[in-house]
Every structure is written in structure tokens, then in C-alpha cells.
Simulated scan of single mutants.
Amino acid sequence: MDINTKTAIVTGASSGIGIDFSQALIKKGATVFGLARSTDKLQKVQQELGENFHPVTMDITDHDAIEEWINATFSTDHQPDILINNAGFGRFADVDELSLDEWEAMVQTNLSGTFYMTRQIVPLMKEKESVCHIINIVSIAGKVGNPKMTGYNASKFGVRGFSEGLFKEVRYDGIKVTCFYPGSIATNFFGDKDIDTHDNMMQPDEVAQVLVNVLETPDNFLINDITMRPLNPKAPEDQ
């Protein structure tokens, strides 16, 4: 895909790798609709990235709001080329201490939100003659289970299964589906979880470059799964 002039949707665009994804796409000439719940944060991102970043205040767990926005924004003459399902939420605790609200929030954001966005965008992509691309940002937690991560693992394993089925379902409609399984990235996602970032974590711009590389593959070339990790994941002071 030639990203120049393409239209992209990025969820979770107000922080973390969502900003870097948006920036990388805009640098390649794309127009980005950046979705997130915080209007203030989105406006700051727009000030940084410029007029090709269109902020959209959206809670991706609200299917009706998603449908209303998509119907108002896109049409048979204007369809998105790229969907980056990046928004994510995590709470970590022993299974008997994980609250019902935390469980529901992870399932709704990580799994249902991905489904809600995708089911609305796929029909529009099917109408395009050019190849389109859906990228689901999962996490290594979609492949490997760990203690205190039962809810997060469950939601991310769900996205993994969803992506595998979707890839086989829409490949003949000219829609690529790629699942990203990144390990630790130095973002504020960890700041909310009492896990300190450090220099040996992957950097958001590095992951964004991989995203660009995957999008720019030839039309009949698909990378449907990609796992990325720090070579040395230990904090410098622990070595």
C-alpha cells in the first residue's frame, strides 16, 4: 500500500503508541481520524500533528455512537483505507481480587470495542477497489498467560481469535488483517499500573515504524501476525 493520500482511523489516539501511529501515518501523507475519550488530549495531539489529524471524541465501547459517527463521516464515495484498533485497557490483580467492573471494562474496551469498530468499517472497505488494511494491536498477553493478568489475558486472547477468523473471512475482499503482539513498550500504559518504564523497553516510534513497514507491503503480500519484544527486557539497574 502507498500510504500517501490514504484515510486511516486510529483508536486510542490521545496517548502512548496511538500518537506515534498517527504521527507516522501523517508523515507518510495519510489523513488520520484519531479516536479517544479525552477531547482535551486529542486537541493537544492535533496541535502537535497538524490539520491532517482529525480528533474524534469517542468511547469505543459505545456501539451506537460509533455507528452514528461512521455514518456521518463516511459514504460510498469516501471510505477508510486503514483501521488501527489500538485502544486498550488493563487492570492486574489475582482472580479473586479482580473486580467485576475491571473485568467488564477490559472485555468491553479490548475485545468488544475492536469488534464494534471493525463490524462498521468492514462493509465500507469491501466497497473499495484498492486493498485495505486492519491492524489489531493485541499485546504479548494475547499469546502468553501470566498470574494477575487473567482478565487482560482473556480479553487479548479474544482479540487474537477474532483477528484469526477475520483474516480468513475478508482476505478475498481485498482486506488485510494483521495482529500485533508487542512486548513491553515505554508508554504511560505502565504508569497507571505501578510498573516503571525503562530504557530497555521498546520505544513507541520503533513500533510505529513496524506498523508503516507492514502497511507498505505489496498488495498480495500479507503479514497476518507479528510478535515484537525487547532483545534484553531487563531494566538497566537489574542487569
Rank of each mutant, 00 (worst) to 15 (best):
I3Q: 06
T5H: 14
A8H: 08
V10W: 02
A13N: 02
S15T: 08
I17D: 00
F21R: 05
S22T: 10
S22E: 05
Q23M: 11
Q23C: 07
I26F: 09
K27A: 14
K27D: 13
G29A: 04
G29F: 09
T31H: 07
F33S: 01
L35C: 13
R37F: 09
R37I: 13
S38D: 13
S38Q: 07
K41F: 08
Q43Y: 09
E48Y: 04
L49H: 05
G50H: 11
F53N: 07
H54F: 14
P55E: 00
M58V: 04
D59Q: 03
D62K: 14
D62H: 15
D64N: 14
I66D: 00
W69V: 05
I70K: 01
I70T: 05
N71F: 12
N71T: 13
T73K: 11
F74N: 02
F74G: 06
F74H: 03
T76P: 02
H78E: 05
H78R: 11
Q79M: 10
Q79V: 10
I82Q: 06
G90R: 03
D94E: 15
D94Y: 14
E97L: 15
L98E: 12
E102A: 12
W103P: 08
W103C: 01
E104L: 14
A105Y: 07
Q108D: 15
T109D: 12
N110D: 13
L111D: 03
G113N: 01
F115A: 12
M117Q: 01
M117H: 04
M117C: 07
M117G: 00
Q120N: 07
L124T: 00
M125N: 04
M125D: 03
E127V: 12
S130R: 12
N136D: 01
V138M: 05
I140D: 10
G142R: 00
G142L: 11
V144L: 13
G145R: 07
N146D: 11
M149T: 11
G151E: 02
N153L: 09
N153S: 13
S155N: 06
F157D: 03
G158I: 06
G158S: 09
G161M: 10
E164T: 10
K168G: 11
K168I: 06
V170D: 03
V177K: 06
T178A: 03
T178K: 07
F180S: 00
Y181E: 02
Y181H: 03
S184Y: 09
A186Q: 07
T187W: 09
F189N: 02
F190Y: 13
K193W: 02
D196L: 14
T197R: 06
N200F: 08
D205S: 15
Q209W: 08
Q209C: 09
V210C: 05
L211A: 05
V212A: 00
N213V: 06
V214M: 01
V214S: 08
L215C: 09
L215R: 03
T217W: 04
D219T: 15
N220G: 06
N224T: 14
T227H: 02
M228H: 05
L231P: 02
N232I: 13
N232V: 10
P236I: 08
E237T: 08
Q239L: 15
